[in-house]
Amino acid sequence: MILYAIVCCKFIQYNKPMFQLNNAAFAVSTHTILQPTNILFKKGVVTTLLGHNGCGKSTLMKLLSRQNLPSQGQVLLDDQEVTQLKQKDFALKVAYLPQHPPITEGVTVTELVRFGRYPWKGAFGRYTDHDHSLVAQAIAKVGLEGYQERFVATLSGGERQRAWVAMLLAQQSECILLDEPTSALDISHQHELLALIRELNESLGLTVIMVLHDINMAAKFSDHLIALHSGKVIAQGAPEDIMKVDVLKQIYGMDLALFPHPITGHPISYIP
């Protein structure tokens, strides 16, 4: 009976949407950037937004992270309008990594990652051993051990990006929003970061919503893909539904061909 209840809870929890867009649109003066959109972002799922530049991906991310408010419609987080949450409560649920994290002067890696503990402790709460160990773990997870006392401004682009991801991890929110997290990384670090995010998603049930440009990476590491074009959702579904020649042509406006991965058999796209 108890087991059933737990399963039930888990079931319910995983089927409730994290974010829900009800007819949400965004416009700057007369120029509509995002058409009225209805999307559900499920809990515990890795969702990736696809589309070419200027299709409205970043705008959608900004609506979710409440940097922009929809010009019409609603954005709901756990059935509650995002604007109703206090800043700190929102931060406990959602962490956001901007596409270009600001350059921080005179902040060390440890200090940066520790900022992630702010929503839990506020301005005056003491950082306990628990917090410090979480910070250390987050740094270890992104592979920056030995860099703890280095200044973030002196790191390379990829190291800097990983330091910021570590801050997001230390924040321990239910959902993380990543706007092109791999743009500054080389191929091995891209893979490492996405594998890490996938692992966190599987082990902790972390909800992930991100923007990626590499369709193959997106298909490999996501449960759900959403494709946008001129501010409209044109396709969404599991990777195998999107990885089709006609859908890809629709998304990117060019011919992409597919071949099966020699080992896994998953479709891989390439430029013919």
Partner: peptide, 23 residues
């Protein structure tokens, strides 16, 4: 001095500071 965490966080810029829950 007690509010030093605020002062550190605002250096991240408004977006990132808000993202970690700073009002």
């Amino acid at each position: 001095i007690l509010l030093h965490r605020w002062l550190d966080l605002i250096a991240l810029g408004e977006v990132s500071a808000n993202s970690v829950g700073l009002n």
